[in-house]
């Protein structure tokens, strides 16, 4: 399923002192099966953009086409849109409310009025994907650790079997272990189920490591697009937008400055390791 965003503009509180242009004529295209990284400074319009994609907020002007069809054309189909495009908000664990983990994850599929068997199947497979084992199913979500809660909440979105998964900073505030677990789960989802993933992140390392294409938001506009290599080669522009390239690329820039013959387009630790191995041999 492809998503096409045409001239999308969103203004919060138009006509009042609180007026704010959050999105300014954004045009983008996201193809099926892509892994997109959405980066941008706080307040650049990332969250507003992703909330438009499943119709949680309506555009001030412009349109969002899902497989060529405007998602706001038929209001009764919005639920279907929300099933196909799963959106996990920032700190999704704050939306947990049920008595047990299992019931909470089942909330989405139940709302979609699936059959009990389907619900069970979806819930189990979603919890498995995020690495929640069976003995936790009947626990209260509020007894879990922060990382577990986060994963349960993401499972709540996955249980609706979305074709596109949007995650707004899924790793914010987690310890390194929790972060790795979540990122691994997302990577698996993309590779095994082939679903389209849009990852909003402030971690350039995560983005460099995972995504196929980066979209840079700046002041409500899609300022840059391209592969991680292309985007991170514009370090100066990124820094002007309050962003940066992955840490490891600065190490290589410094090495180059000191006269070592190293490439400067190294953006992941894995790549760096390989290059340095080669050199030391």
């Amino acid at each position: 399923m492809s998503i096409q965003i045409n001239h999308l503009t969103h203004i919060y509180n138009p006509g009042t002192a609180f007026e704010k242009v959050a999105l300014d004529d954004v045009t983008l295209e996201i193809a099926k099966g892509e892994f997109i990284g959405l980066i941008g400074h706080t307040g650049s319009g990332k969250s507003t953009l992703i909330q438009h994609l499943n119709g949680i907020i309506s555009p001030t002007s412009g349109e969002i086409l899902l497989d060529g069809e405007n998602i706001h054309k038929d209001k009764t189909k919005l639920k279907e849109v929300r099933r196909r495009i799963g959106l996990a908000f920032q700190y999704p664990e704050y939306q947990l409310f049920e008595m047990t983990v299992y019931k909470d994850v089942a909330f989405g599929p139940t709302n979609l009025k699936l059959s009990p068997e389907e619900i069970h199947q979806n819930v189990v497979s979603a919890l498995e994907t995020v690495g929640i084992s069976e003995e936790i199913y009947e626990k209260s979500p509020f007894e879990l650790s922060g990382g577990q809660k986060r994963r349960v909440a993401i499972a709540g979105v996955l249980a609706m079997n979305p074709e596109v998964l949007i995650l707004d900073e899924p790793t914010a505030g987690l310890d390194p272990k929790g972060r790795d677990e979540i990122l691994q789960a997302i990577k698996d989802l993309h590779e095994k189920r082939g679903i389209t993933v849009i990852l909003v992140s402030h971690s350039m390392e995560d983005v460099a490591k995972l995504v196929d294409r980066i979209i840079v938001m700046h002041r409500g506009k899609a300022a840059m697009q391209g592969t991680p290599k292309e985007i991170f080669s514009h370090v100066q522009e990124l820094e002007k937008m309050g962003l940066a390239a992955p840490q490891v690329s600065y190490v290589f820039a410094a090495l180059k400055e000191r006269g070592f013959d190293v490439p400067t387009d190294i953006y992941t630790v894995e790549e760096a390791k390989n290059v340095l191995y080669q050199m030391l041999k």
Partner: peptide, 30 residues
């Protein structure tokens, strides 16, 4: 929270009084 539950297919607008009241639980608890 409303948006997050909507993203999970929650419906706050349809149904009778009882169903509407029940649909508030996913908002009120969090």
């Amino acid at each position: 929270i409303i948006k997050a539950q909507q993203a999970r297919g929650a419906d706050f607008d349809t149904g009778n009084m009882m169903q509407k009241a029940k649909s508030m639980i996913p908002i009120l608890v969090p």
